[in-house]
Amino acid sequence: MSWASSLAMRAVRIYQLSREGKPSPCRYFPTCSQYALESYEKHGFFKGSLLSAKRIGRCNPFGSSGVDPVPEVFSLRKSK
């Protein structure tokens, strides 16, 4: 794993720790932060960041919701 993605993952972990115990506002499963961790792990820093940014972008009151896992194959188009 590149130093960039491990640094990014650490930042996400700190964020998660700071929100520990509060109910999650996330519309999706896994939550956006968990999604970010998984996408960094699967797709590396650049693609992982893009995927995570897209995920946070759709996690708004007008987006969809439900189960939304990290895609196995990187693609910026809508899955399914």
Binding site: I56, N60, S65
Partner: peptide, 27 residues
């Protein structure tokens, strides 16, 4: 993993969890 996702989707539907917020407004 696949069965897990299906079961979770089902659970969300059954409970009619209506997500109104999201991470973006919180951020």
């Amino acid at each position: 993993k696949i069965a897990q996702q299906e079961a979770l989707s089902q659970l969300f539907k059954e409970n009619k969890v209506s997500p109104a917020g999201g991470c973006l407004p919180m951020l």
